[in-house]
Amino acid sequence: MTQYIIKRLLLLPLLLFIFSVFAFFIIQAPPGDFVTSYIAELAASGSSMDQAQVEALREQYGLDQPMIVQYFRWVGGMLRGNFGVSLDWKRPIMELIKERLLLTVLLGAMTFIISWSLAIPIGIISATKKYSFIDYFFTVFNYMGVATPTFMTALILMWLAYSYFGVSVTGLFSPEYVDAPWSLARAMDLLKHLWLPALILALDGTARLARVMRANLLDELNKPYVEMARAKGMSEWRLVLKYPVHLAINPLVSTIGWYLPMLFSGSVIVATVLNLPTIGPLLLRSLTNQDMFLAGVIVLIYCFLAIIGTLISDVLLAWLDPRIRMEA
């Protein structure tokens, strides 16, 4: 098992290299560069730039070099721990994303905990009490959860919170803490704000997850090992939780790996609506402005998280299912 994990970790640099190439060239693929979109922005606000200024700007950012050179400069910098400077924000990239990344991961973890701790019990209850009132209730709840866009839920909750309780639920911090340095009080303030966006984001995932859990468990409940456990004299709840739930949860565990990257991109609209300082809106903006170094770094972090996430879910799966351990 340890050997397997080490093997997977050794592959990581290679995968990251491949991803960095793809990330860089895909971001470069649209015509024009940051300077072009900068000029367009200037033109929109009524001012303009002469050709010499444009050339100077290109040279300053190294955009006049061939792509390969640009790529190696970027990667070389990253290897020395220098992620470069955002063209758009004129600030070091590290400084820009540090806190946002932390908040995104926190929000992701919270969303994950909420959706799993809701979805798994709901799935179990729906499956074991199939076609009962409670099953139908959850079915309706789940369909609503799947069908309602998350930003819509966010808007409704915002409106409800504001018009009935007079609270503003946007952002992750109270105004006095937004730019404050980290402290215990700030962390507490974050926790006070984090749960609502996490809940909104979790509802969508919960609904899907609960449906899958229900279907998986229904398949398992008719297996002979369940009847055998009954024949041994086990109580129904104990045997359901020990045997079929264990087997029904396995396929779900393999989806954990995609969770964080999915949340990265999936939460962009909700993050925009709720004004959350997460990484999604930053990525969106960097892409529209062709702020390629910033976009590249974010995409790379994405890939890194996806690889780590997949590794975690593979290890978990092997731990839960000895049949997978054998093949590894």
Partner: peptide
Amino acid sequence: IRSIRGAEIALIPQEPMASFSPVH
């Protein structure tokens, strides 16, 4: 009935493969 099942009346099922949990 649960105190009788497995204790006083035990079952040998048809398919031993499927009647054991594969993950225990």
